[in-house]
Design a protein around this nucleic acid. Structure first.
Lengths: 192, 192, 192, 192
DNA sequence: TATGAATGAGACTTCATTCAT
DNA sequence: CATGAATGAAGTCTCATTCAT
């Protein structure tokens, strides 16, 4: 019926994304996706080699893209403080713009992270780099970079998780300044 | 082999726990578990009604138990600051004592949380209650409790996640004071 | 590319023939053929009603044609000995001229033979007729015609099979006199 | 229903064998086999890793077994003439004892032969060895061993094929002496 | 209680065929 | 005539669960 060219792939992607988030990847069947998208099951295989490939493409593309945007963004600022603030605002904007996609990246991490090679630029990678530079510049005391990155990530991501579950109802962008402050204070300041 | 009654159930539970964490719940088959535990496939059904039941029991028991421990613990302290510190140390001790179980609770959340009724006491519940009390007592300024709880949870959990992935190699207990400080500073202090 | 009318049909036929021999008929997909021939999948259906039709046309045309050539040829000789010799040389020449086609007829037999009606003239038919005539003429003793035909066919075809598999490397035409002799000696001579 | 232990595997094998011969391997579905055998589809996978594995096991076991029997048999005779006669009688007896199995080996050859490693002992291997020894002993003139083997094989196999198709109706054993004679006369005798 | 062969629903995937362009 | 995206029936295989032993 729908023979509308290259629009089909995007339709499948959006439909799959939604179902993956709602039911989980393994729990979502090809038939679920095809039915919800209004295409035949076989049609999925014209656009993706397999269900795994679909899940991976959805993850990889957006995960990497987001990390790169983050990296470009941070380069436009000089201090750790400004870089961090910009990145957090970006996180929030991303979530608000496409909560389903954000949620997918969150939930798919555990399963897909095995396929992420060390060379790939990820949000974690970028955050660690930025923090390490800030430490080198003595903006914050030198401590365990991994630990610092984990805590900062945690503050932002867990709020996003609560938002995704409906425990928090604000737009994340409305909370971004709170998050910026909180994250900054998580990094051990001089004199503490 | 392993025909000795109720020891079998624990054997199956430990084996399942490990496999669930390593491969994911859906990706782990009854045969996987039976083989790894050295019992027959049918044996699992002597102890658990179904695979879902096994996964749920593993989750529910430990999730609730931990929350209750947390609740009992916090009651032994008076101030938010002390309660929080004790709870965080408990988190860390739990992780270090049984990282596999902790990881399971972490990963199973998304799938099992649908079955968690609002009445159940969970770690989040306890944390929110404690923070709300602290705000009422003016230990910290009154703000969004959910948000505050999310940020505190995030700091601790994300560090645990990094630990589980091997990005951080310290025992969590060695980091507990750092986490206590960070979590405290995440809660908006008076005068800020 | 390759939009030039009836050349396309031959292109498809040659491509299909090769793939059928290499991988088997059922194992060769329409896509395999289309890709290898450099045409679209749909194009095949401009020239053949179905895949089965393609396989059948390839078989039938050549199987029948060859049998008719054989029949015309044998009519130009008077004795069984000469007829047989001419036919065997023809077999060898056919193999050498188009080993892929010959192999196809060989392998397609089992599957396609069900569609061969008794009226159709085949190589076996012709051979049996010729042998029967020879027996009637007392060139060779009268015995089971079917059996005699089977043995003669076997000598020639099995050598062709070995050749197709690369076990024998000579051109069949170089072996034709050997085959002629062998086949003749297989037919029970007078006095034996 | 049928929980009759190790009998199931043989039941599946016999059923598959028959269907493979009747319809072809690719054309026979797992469901066909399961239904005809009166077991569930999944049951096949308790005994064979895959359909291919089933087809291969059926082929390999019997193909190799038969070749070994042939080899043991020929060792009990001294001359090529006697060895050959014994082997041909064995072929005929095999066909008559289990025509379905024999037919399967015949038809499966093309598809399965790719998996036959050169080290494996096959009927062709044995035949070539025996002929080569006979040539070395000057029982027959030295000529191309492969060619000689092909012709001998051809005589016997094509008769079997005709028998399988119903073109010949005798038991092969009733024809064995005719075949022995014919095969012997195919090998170039001294003085010719 | 334990076993493990058997089950069968259902998942993923393939592929011959159609049809709008 | 050619194209190739779309179709959907059908095939292979998996796996949670049952049940006779």
């Amino acid at each position: 019926m729908a023979r509308n060219g290259n629009h089909t792939k995007e339709l499948i992607e959006r439909t799959a994304l939604k179902l993956f988030v709602d039911k989980g990847i393994t729990e979502t069947t090809i038939r679920d996706i095809a039915t919800a998208a209004g295409v035949a099951e076989g049609t999925l295989y014209r656009h993706f080699a397999s269900k795994d490939e679909l899940a991976w493409e959805l993850f990889q593309t957006n995960y990497i893209t987001f990390a790169q945007e983050l990296d470009h963004l941070q380069q436009r600022y000089d201090t750790l403080k400004d870089k961090l603030a910009a990145m957090i605002r970006q996180f929030c904007a991303f979530f608000d713009r496409d909560p389903v996609l954000f949620s997918y990246l969150l939930l798919a991490q555990h399963a897909q992270l095995k396929k992420v090679t060390p060379e790939m630029v990820t949000a974690v990678t970028v955050l660690q780099k930025v923090i390490a530079q800030g430490m080198a510049r003595r903006e914050v005391p030198e401590t365990d970079v991994e630990l610092a990155a984990a805590m900062v990530m945690g503050v932002v991501l867990q709020v996003a998780v609560f938002r995704a579950y409906g425990r928090i109802t604000n737009n994340l962008s409305d909370l971004s300044e709170t998050l910026v402050t909180a994250c900054w204070r998580v990094l051990p300041e001089e004199g503490h």
